[in-house]
Amino acid sequence: MTDPYAGSAEYLDLLIAGFWEAAAPDVASVLAELPPGSGAVVDLGAGSGRGVRVLGEAVPGVPVVAVEPSAVMRAALMPRIVDDPDLRDRVTVLPGGALDEVLPGEVRAVLALNMLGHLTGPERRELLERVLRALVPGGVLVTNLAPPFEPVTVPRALMARTEVGELVYEGYASAEPSGADGLVWRMEYRTLRGDAEISAVTVEYPWCVCSEEELVAEATALGFGVRRVGDPALGLHVLGRSSAGASALA
């Protein structure tokens, strides 16, 4: 299977930093509400490890499982773990996809950020079922939804820009519909020195769209309660398992 990040990995950690700067406080606040216990916490689609770091800091002293299928992203993830003595003792990195790996027993929290669209609708529902079975009462799944929520054309736009040393790194995104619930994203990355472009790469990958209404319907049918958290622009949703059953979106 082709690794969709093989060509763009050098840009991804840099250009996703802004998302995590905005989202990390809200994610940490949700994790601070977890019930006490020794159960593991899990990051599905761990990427370069920014979410793993948030888990490690917000839920101290418990095992962390990082699931990441991309070899090039694991190459960025592992140094972030190995260079932190606490994370090195606690984090296990698994190389499969979200549906390839068996979740540990008594999971207290699962992060699934910026990755749901890599799953088809049936795969997404299977993931929700698996997470629900693994979560302890009071445990949560934290995920996010980003537009578009239906298969439409997305005009090319600058998504992120950052400077490191003398260089500027930019990421542009556009998309075209593909089927009843899919898109093909076209991601263009550039490295600039002054006005000169010194390197560039373009990658394409499929993405399954999911609206908030769809997610809520699927989650509540299984017995999750669903609530929004944080800045609406981040699309963060918390799916909680409780003995009281599901609740409406709050």
Rank of each mutant, 00 (worst) to 15 (best):
Ala109Val: 02
Pro206His: 13
Glu106Lys: 14
Ser8Glu: 10
Ala246Met: 06
Val93Gln: 06
Val62Tyr: 08
Arg228Cys: 07
Val54Met: 07
Gly245Pro: 06
Leu215His: 03
Glu123Tyr: 01
Met115Gly: 01
Ile81Pro: 06
Val52Gln: 04
Val136Ala: 03
Phe224Val: 04
Ala200Cys: 09
Arg190Ser: 04
Leu222Pro: 01
Val110Leu: 03
Val41Met: 05
Gly139Glu: 08
Ala58Thr: 11
Ala160Thr: 06
Cys208His: 13
Glu21Gln: 14
Ala219Lys: 02
Pro95Leu: 11
Glu68Cys: 06
Asp84Arg: 04
Arg156Met: 08
Arg133Phe: 09
Arg53Phe: 00
Leu135Pro: 01
Glu214Gly: 10
Ala221Leu: 08
Arg186Gly: 05
Gly235Val: 12
Asp231Glu: 15
Phe19Lys: 06
Asp89Ser: 15
Ile198Thr: 15
Ala250Ser: 15
Ala66Gln: 06
Arg156Ser: 10
Arg193Leu: 14
Val30Glu: 15
Val238Tyr: 09
Ala66Phe: 00
Asp26Ser: 13
Gly47Tyr: 10
Val27Ala: 03
Tyr172Leu: 06
Leu99Met: 08
Ala6His: 00
Glu213Pro: 06
Leu132His: 15
Arg161Ser: 15
Ala134Pro: 00
Arg130Leu: 03
Glu218Gln: 15
Ile81Tyr: 02
Glu33Val: 00
Val59Arg: 05
Gly235Ser: 09
Glu163Cys: 07
Gly165Phe: 01
Val110Arg: 06
Leu239Ile: 13
Gly121Trp: 07
Arg88Thr: 11
Gly138Met: 05
Gly39Pro: 03
Ala180Ser: 13
Asn114Ser: 10
